[in-house]
Design a protein around this nucleic acid. Structure first.
Lengths: 144, 144
DNA sequence: ACCTATAATTAGTGAAGGCTAACTTTATTA
DNA sequence: TAATAAAGTTAGCCTTCACTAATTATAGGT
């Protein structure tokens, strides 16, 4: 059985996000989201369909299977926690945080993600409840 | 001029590490380190040579140029801080930490790296000087 | 109903980066 | 020193994933 490549994982995630933005997902939306041509998006969808992760009637809408949705949500949840880490904790701009999360999400296995999430949440609660901690952290991030 | 791809960045880094392990770097060492065939390693070295990042006499040794060494060290320093974060802070096994660092290092730009490094160092010092903090952190990481 | 614009698809191409098999060079050792 | 082993290299092929150009299908307006 073919494994999901990093690229196809990105497409799967894009489809999930498109769903929430358009209700009906089409080749065009995916191409826009991924910044690729429509033939490239089309080929990716075809590949995902072959793996049973999406359904795609010719010239019609694209839908995630439940299997595909599971995988997409798994990737996307990594994306979100990483994005928040870069933006809220390292104080990076939105676009940088987005790019970082996008590049990195594929490299976090389950254990790494679980640990990372816990540490991140711990640190956020620490910031919320301990003003000194927050101050020290801010100081550490000064002087770019 | 061609930019350094993610793959070539890996090779460059591997050459730097091989240097410290073998004194004389050969195609074979790189192939072993990268887990690729020797023709693949050879092709990568050839490409790096074309970019002026290594020197390679046929059937001889492989050496980094000063330009190549700069770039390799830049990547490797990201690798090291990431590795330590995963191992010492998230408590992940060495091989997982290594794999994570390897996959992620390419996606950290200068600002991200600087911020990340500072936060990591701040947290380490926090652990060192504040036993309560260390305990709470450990607790947060329990129950895999 | 038909014409046109938009979208989707197919066909064909190229770069990156991997592989094996075959061949050449260098090194070792009998 | 000649034979063989080991390493390096070359040639040729495959996959992934992008692209453009050309074709086909659908949908809207008249």
């Amino acid at each position: 059985m073919h494994a999901l490549t990093e690229g196809l994982e990105d497409y799967l995630e894009a489809i999930l996000v498109c769903e929430s933005e358009h209700r009906f997902v089409r080749t065009k939306h995916i191409a826009e989201k991924m910044n690729v041509s429509s033939p490239s998006a089309h080929a990716a969808v075809k590949e995902l369909a072959k793996m049973g992760l999406v359904e795609h009637e010719s010239y019609g809408y694209i839908e995630l299977t439940s299997e595909g949705r599971n995988q997409a949500e798994k990737v996307y949840s990594k994306h979100k926690v990483l994005f928040r880490f870069f933006r809220d904790f390292l104080g990076l701009p939105d676009d940088t945080s987005e790019a970082n999360a996008c590049g990195i999400e594929h490299h976090f296995d389950d254990l790494t993600t679980k640990r990372f999430r816990r540490v991140f949440e711990f640190l956020l609660s620490k910031i919320a409840e301990d003003k000194d901690f927050e101050e020290e952290l801010k100081k550490a991030l000064k002087n770019d």
